[in-house]
């Protein structure tokens, strides 16, 4: 994992109220904690850095009661949205492109505008288009194409 990204994550953690963050990207995984890990029964859990624009899921399944709770983070005072997590509004399957042969919606490093489609979450043969709720640069894509995702799970980080 790029050291600059790790540095960004540390900054993100410092600005936020959260104690620990874990990011998995392919085979790479990094966990950053404010406190010694020995003090935690650290079951790795996806942490949503910000509540999504469309968190008011109309079809959140019963199973979501056990889903990780989105931890809201105050935006930095500069006003520039930074390190926003776009999270899954429902349980489903992640798709990074509109069809298997098509180009991906976004790559890391791409800039996105509010309303741009960044991925699709499929549930019950409904392809729910997930839009960027902030403008910025894609810092990370946290779920792979075809991955099952849980409610509230971070899909894409935009900063």
């Amino acid at each position: 994992m790029d050291i600059r990204k790790v540095k960004k994550l540390i900054e993100l953690l410092e600005e936020s109220g959260i104690a620990e963050i874990e990011i998995t990207e392919g085979d790479d995984s990094v966990r950053i904690s404010r406190y010694p890990t020995s003090g935690y029964a650290a079951a790795p859990q996806p942490v949503a850095v910000q509540t999504p624009a469309i968190a008011a899921s109309v079809d959140a399944p019963a199973a979501q009661a056990a889903a990780p709770v989105a931890a809201p983070v105050a935006a930095p005072e500069s006003g520039t949205p930074r390190g926003h997590a776009i999270t899954a509004p429902m349980v489903g399957t992640m798709y990074t492109s509109p069809s298997p042969t098509a180009d991906v919606f976004v790559n890391v490093g791409d800039s996105v505008a509010v309303g741009d489609i960044v991925c699709i979450i499929e549930a019950m043969k409904m392809m729910n288009q997930i839009e960027a709720d902030v403008a910025g640069t894609v810092l990370a894509i946290e779920a792979q194409n075809g991955d099952p995702v849980e409610f509230g799970q971070t899909l894409i980080v935009v900063g």
């Binding site: 008011a56 019950m124 043969k125 409904m126 392809m127 288009q129």
Partner: peptide, 25 residues
């Protein structure tokens, strides 16, 4: 067949796929 495959005599005769675009609000 859940969620919406159409079957005739147990074999697939059709399917439905829904795209959802916009804000859940």
């Amino acid at each position: 067949k859940w969620p919406n495959d159409l079957l005739a005599n147990g074999r697939k005769i059709g399917g439905i796929l829904i795209d959802v675009h916009g804000d859940l609000a």
